[in-house]
Design a protein around this nucleic acid. Structure first.
Length: 361
RNA sequence: GCCGAGGUAGCUCAGUGGUAGAGCGAAGGACUGAAAAUCCUUGCGUCAGCAGUUCAAUUCUGCUCCUCGGCA
């Protein structure tokens, strides 16, 4: 038997926020006995529900013993969904961990005769999984996923050393790994820091680290394509809905519990509230000037969330555009706002179902 | 009606007697352990209108229009 035929099959549903990938995924899962593996870097966090658009995901109450397997903890419209709510809001998650978790989950799903659907908008996570990035074991990353370790200390010292300018870090990198300077974006401090961190913690060269292993899976990639106008409209509606559902309360609770510096508060839908809460009871706390002023009024918070979401969606698009393996499926031209939700994905469904059917053989 | 402040990039505003800039937004791009992150590239716009002074006005002067405060 040929090697290639043995590769397990997975289906990836990716695309911009608000493009309707979740909807599509659910439809496909229902038809093809699928289970969802979340590939969204924010939905992995507990207690972050409204702002990360986890709408519809519920704790599974039914203990499905049919196959003698523990049922999924979470379900979405009847479909099991994994890798959701797995880390605390003040912990840190990353690609390496995701790849590991996803591979385990996929193996589990397949072992039960179901089809894994990787669904999410985090391009890096998806690529790492699909292209099998060789990500070195991170020894200091404890199983409990606590972010306090030797590496973090190094990272912090790199970052907090204001004495070290970017230029100095670049210099340093040159000494440790001269080839790295050719690959790394030297204007991007975070990238330089990472390259250095890699060299210093592993003792190896960063320039030799970015390798792809042999593909583990046979993959079908599908992404819903939505017009810019439609997307902006959807984002607008979504933000309004989040507010109605009590985003403010959720943010307040998280901020109180974990602080504004926590991982949780760096996400879109959360970080925009800083000035708003700071200004409560202090009308002059609002900095009107320049850069990072997110404004004090509810309206300005909403506007900012919308802008941040739009920019994020755009970045996602430039990422996915270059992936030539993606099958873009066009949604049906849908009439208007709220009801449109129901229609988005109708045509997707048909086209996508054909693709999946053919793929699964 | 009077007094004061002002009309400059899509928005908020800097600025100069020799036709202008920052931030935000927008557009495009990158991306191998923070990725909803981080970074890169892109700004001729009747400098409100008209007239005057000047070799030269967006910058000075006058008038007109408009906006915003205060007083009536």
């Amino acid at each position: 038997m040929k090697k290639m035929d043995n590769k397990p099959k997975i289906i990836v549903i990716c695309g911009q926020t608000g493009s309707g990938k979740t909807n599509l995924a659910v439809q496909l899962c229902k038809k093809f006995k699928g289970e969802i593996v979340n590939a969204d870097s924010r939905q992995v966090y507990k207690e972050m529900n409204i702002g990360t658009a986890k709408g519809g995901i519920q704790k599974s109450k039914i203990k499905n013993q049919k196959f003698g397997v523990p049922s999924a903890q979470y379900i979405l419209d009847g479909v099991p969904i994994w890798l959701v709510n797995i880390v605390e809001p003040n912990e840190r998650y990353n690609v390496g961990q995701f790849k590991k978790d996803a591979e385990e989950t996929i193996a589990d799903i397949i072992s039960r005769g179901k089809v894994p659907f990787i669904v999410g908008g985090t391009g890096l996570y998806i690529d790492a999984l699909v292209d099998n990035y060789e990500i070195p074991e991170e020894r200091t990353w404890s199983d409990s996923r606590k972010a306090v370790n030797e590496k973090t200390r190094l990272r912090v010292s790199l970052r907090n050393s204001n004495s070290k300018s970017l230029a100095e870090l670049v210099d340093f990198l040159g000494k440790v790994d001269s080839d790295a300077q050719k690959i790394v974006d030297l204007k991007n401090r975070r990238r330089v820091e990472r390259a250095l961190e890699y060299c210093l913690t592993t003792g190896k060269k960063f320039s030799e680290s970015r390798k792809k292993g042999e593909q583990k899976y046979e993959v079908l990639k599908i992404a819903p394509l939505i017009s810019r106008e439609k997307l902006l409209e959807k984002i607008g509606i979504r933000v309004e809905e989040m507010i109605e559902q009590g985003l403010e309360k959720e943010v307040k609770k998280l901020a109180g519990k974990y602080g504004w510096e926590s991982e949780a508060m760096t996400g879109i839908g959360y970080r925009e509230w800083g000035d708003y809460f700071a200004s409560v009871g202090n009308r002059h706390a609002c900095s009107k000037s320049g850069k990072n002023s997110h404004g004090c009024s509810l309206q300005s918070v909403k506007d900012r969330i919308k802008i941040d979401t739009r920019q994020y969606a755009k970045r996602q698009m430039t990422w996915f555009k270059r992936d030539k393996e993606i099958n873009w499926v066009h949604p049906v031209k849908s009439p208007t706002s709220r009801s449109a939700k129901q229609f988005d994905g109708v045509k997707n469904e048909k086209q996508a179902k054909k693709l999946v059917k053919k793929f699964l053989g």
